[in-house]
Simulated assay, not measured.
Amino acid sequence: MKNFNMMKKLLALTLGAAMLLAVITGCGKKDTAQEPADDQQQQQEEQQPAEPATLLEQIKAKGKVVVGTEAQYAPYEFKDLDANFAGCDMWLAQQIADSLGVELEVVDMAFGGIIPAVQSGQVDLGIAAFTNTPERAEEIDFSDLYETSAQLLIVKAGNADTYSTKESLVGLKVGAQKGTIQSQLIQSALPESELFELEKYPALALEVQNGNIAGLVVDQAVGEALVATSNGALEVSNFTFTAEEASFGKSVVIAKGNEDLVEAVNEVINKVTADGSYQKAYDEAVELAASLGL
Rank of each mutant, 00 (worst) to 15 (best):
M1C: 02
F4L: 12
N5V: 12
L13C: 08
L13S: 12
G16A: 14
L20K: 08
T25V: 13
G26Q: 08
K30R: 10
Q41F: 07
P49E: 12
A61Q: 09
K62S: 11
K64Y: 09
V66Y: 05
V66W: 07
V67D: 06
E70H: 12
A71I: 05
P75G: 08
F78C: 11
A83N: 15
N84K: 13
N84I: 10
N84L: 11
F85K: 10
A86P: 09
A86V: 11
A86F: 12
V107N: 12
D108V: 10
A110D: 14
F111V: 09
G112M: 07
I115S: 04
I115F: 01
A117L: 10
G121V: 05
Q122Y: 14
V123G: 07
L125A: 05
A128G: 05
A129W: 13
N132A: 13
E135F: 01
R136A: 03
E139Q: 12
E139H: 03
D141W: 09
T148L: 01
T148C: 01
L153I: 04
K156I: 12
G158W: 03
N159V: 10
A160E: 15
Y163A: 11
E167I: 07
E167Q: 14
K173I: 02
L185G: 04
L190M: 07
S193I: 08
E194C: 03
E194D: 13
E197P: 00
L198I: 07
L198R: 11
A203M: 06
L206D: 13
I213G: 08
A214P: 03
G215Q: 03
L216E: 05
V217N: 00
V217Y: 00
Q220W: 00
V222T: 14
V236Q: 14
N238E: 03
T242Y: 00
E245S: 01
S251H: 04
V252Q: 04
A255D: 06
A264N: 08
V265K: 06
N266C: 09
G276K: 07
S277Y: 12
Y282I: 03
D283E: 15
E287A: 15
